[in-house]
Design a protein around this nucleic acid. Structure first.
Lengths: 97, 97
DNA sequence: TTGATAGGCAAGCAGCTACTTGCCTATAGT
DNA sequence: ACTATAGGCAAGTAGCTGCTTGCCTATCAA
């Protein structure tokens, strides 16, 4: 599938946007940490599998990169795909170059 | 529905992104003009109704604003919703403020 | 080795999306 | 008035999404 499509499709879901917000606030969280922070700090009651699938979508879009150590998998926010979008439709207001 | 969601959902479709590209290149086109440029310059063979619905999605997201004169309706690209997104996840590299 | 922890895989289901089809309204020209 | 042009409305359908459910693998601690 088109790479740009995967980025926008990943971001069209509120839960996934909250996950990105969470990771950009506290990077390197594991799946269970994300599950817990989502329910306690954001009032989202999703199952672990649902969150795992959301993370998969974000990772496929390149918005999240992961690192596996032992039995844990750490998730990091990667803003690069957003930068490409910003370059495609520059937002006027102030010129980027 | 969430305003941010409508923006991303509008942009997760390649045809709609091409429409936006077209409008940002040549603003103020009518539905039939867009249909024709999409098929001749972008090789997309969508029906008029399909394009009309795509434009409806883009308009609902605020990415396209329209002006009706006579029996024609002119479409204009509005980058403002993209600016809001850029403000939500600033793209590092250079600080926006 | 046994049990607990961290996470993955895959099938199934409900709801949504994109597209088509057919018909309708409104404006413009003659 | 009649016809053509520009566009809208609505129903139906195929395919995709998000979520759940149930079970499986892998690592760590005792």
């Amino acid at each position: 599938m088109n790479a740009v499509t995967t980025v926008f499709r990943a971001l069209d879901d509120e839960t996934r946007r909250v996950i990105l917000d969470e990771l950009s606030a506290r990077d390197g969280q594991t799946l269970f940490e994300i599950c817990s922070t989502l329910s306690t700090r954001h009032g989202l009651s999703s199952t672990r599998q649902a969150i795992s699938q959301h993370l998969g979508v974000l990772e496929a879009a390149g918005l999240v990169v992961t690192e596996k150590r032992g039995r844990s998998k750490f998730h990091y926010f990667n803003p690069e795909p957003l930068a490409e979008i910003a370059r495609r439709w520059p937002v006027g207001e102030r010129s980027p170059e």
